[in-house]
C-alpha cells in the first residue's frame, strides 16, 4: 500500500489526470458554446475522432505538433460544417444527425486508417513540453501539473477567455439569446442562423483540437474508435456546468483523475480490471445527476431549429 503514496504514483496520477482531462475540457467547452446557442451537438464524438485522425496524419507527415493541432481543429470544424448545413440551414433533427455523424466518422476514420496504415500503428515522437519556470520544480505535484505541452496551458487559458466572453461581449450575449429566445435575437436584428453557425463551428474546432491532443500528445498514436465516449462526457460536462466554463474545467479534471487512475494503479502494481476504473467517471456523473437533479438547466430552445415566423 505504501507504493500508493510514493512520489512516482502521485506524479503519474496528476500528470495523467491533466493529459486525460484536456480533451474532455476542450470538448466540454466546445459543447457549451453550441448548447448556449441552442444546438445539441450529439455528433461531437465524430468531430473529435476526425480531428484526432486528421491531426495525427498531419503531425505524422509534417513532424510538427503545431500543424497537427491546426489540421485537427480544421478537421473538427469540417465535420461541424456538415452538422451546421444539415441541422441549422435545413433544420433537420439534431439528434438523428448527431448519431449519424458519430457513427459515420467512427467508420470513416477506421477505414481511412486501414487504407493509410494498414495494420500498423506508427508512433509519434514525444510531444514537446513547456516547463513553467519555478513551479515545475515543486516536488511531487510540480512535474505533474506544470510540465506539459503548450496546448494544456492554452486550454486552461481558454476557460478564462470564454468566461469573460460569455458575460462581457456581444457575441456571448447573442449566443445566450440564440439558445433562450431565438425570436428575440432575430427581432433585435441579429441573424440567428449566423450566430448558431459560428457556435457550431467553434465547437467543431475545439473538439477537433481536443481529438488531436488525445492522439498526438496523450497517446502518441491513432487507434480507430480511440475517443471511446470522450465526446459524450463533454456533452455531460457542458450540461452540468450550466453555462459556466470554470465548472467544465473542474468536471474535466475530475474525469481526468478517474481515467488516469487505471494507469497510475498499474504503475503502483495494483491489479484490478481496468473496467472497474473506467466505470468511475460515469458513476460519478450519474451520482452528480441524481444528487443535483433539479439543478441541471438547459436552454429552452435547445435542439429546436429556428424557423422565422414559426411559433
Amino acid at each position: 500500500m505504501n507504493a500508493l503514496l510514493a512520489q512516482p504514483f502521485l506524479t503519474a496520477l496528476v500528470f495523467g489526470a491533466i493529459t486525460a482531462g484536456i480533451p474532455l475540457l476542450l470538448a466540454g467547452l466546445g459543447e457549451q458554446i453550441s448548447e448556449k446557442a441552442g444546438v445539441l451537438n450529439i455528433g461531437i464524438e465524430g468531430m473529435m475522432l476526425f480531428g484526432a485522425y486528421a491531426g495525427f496524419v498531419a503531425a505524422y507527415y509534417s513532424g510538427s505538433f503545431l500543424v497537427g493541432f491546426v489540421v485537427g481543429g480544421l478537421g473538427g470544424a469540417l465535420v461541424a460544417a456538415l452538422v451546421m448545413l444539415l441541422c441549422i440551414r435545413f433544420g433537420l433533427n439534431q439528434i438523428v444527425i448527431g448519431i449519424a455523424v458519430t457513427l459515420g466518422f467512427e467508420g470513416l476514420t477506421a477505414i481511412l486508417h486501414h487504407f493509410q496504415f494498414s495494420r500498423t500503428y506508427p508512433r509519434l515522437a514525444a510531444a514537446p513540453v513547456v516547463d513553467i519556470p519555478g513551479l515545475a520544480a515543486i516536488p511531487v505535484i510540480g512535474p505533474g501539473l506544470f510540465s506539459h505541452n503548450a496546448m494544456v496551458y492554452l486550454a486552461v487559458a481558454l476557460v478564462a477567455v470564454l468566461a469573460w466572453a460569455f458575460r462581457h461581449t456581444y457575441f456571448g450575449l447573442n449566443l445566450e439569446a440564440a439558445g433562450n429566445k431565438p425570436a428575440a435575437l432575430d427581432a433585435a436584428g441579429i441573424d440567428v442562423m449566423k450566430t448558431r453557425t459560428i457556435a457550431v463551428l467553434c465547437t467543431g474546432l475545439l473538439a477537433g483540437v481536443g481529438g488531436a491532443y488525445m492522439a498526438n500528445v496523450g497517446a502518441g498514436i491513432f487507434v480507430p474508435f480511440m475517443t471511446g465516449g470522450a465526446g459524450f462526457i463533454g456533452i455531460v460536462l457542458a450540461m452540468l456546468a450550466r453555462g459556466r466554463p470554470l465548472w467544465v474545467l473542474l468536471g474535466a479534471l475530475l474525469f481526468g483523475v478517474s481515467l488516469s487512475m487505471t494507469t497510475a494503479l498499474q504503475v503502483a502494481g495494483v491489479n484490478i480490471p481496468t473496467d472497474v476504473v473506467q466505470m468511475l467517471p460515469f458513476t460519478m456523473v450519474m451520482l452528480v445527476l441524481v444528487i443535483f437533479a433539479r439543478h441541471s438547466v438547459l436552454p429552452p430552445a435547445l435542439g429546436l431549429p429556428y424557423v422565422r415566423g414559426d411559433r
Partner: peptide, 21 residues
C-alpha cells in the same frame, strides 16, 4: 473493413433526414 457498414448507416440516416425535409 466492415467499419464501412457504419459509414453506410450514417449516410442512410443523413439522406433519410434530408428526404424527410
Amino acid at each position: 473493413p466492415n467499419d464501412f457498414v457504419l459509414v453506410l448507416v450514417a449516410l442512410l440516416l443523413i439522406f433519410l433526414a434530408v428526404v424527410e425535409y
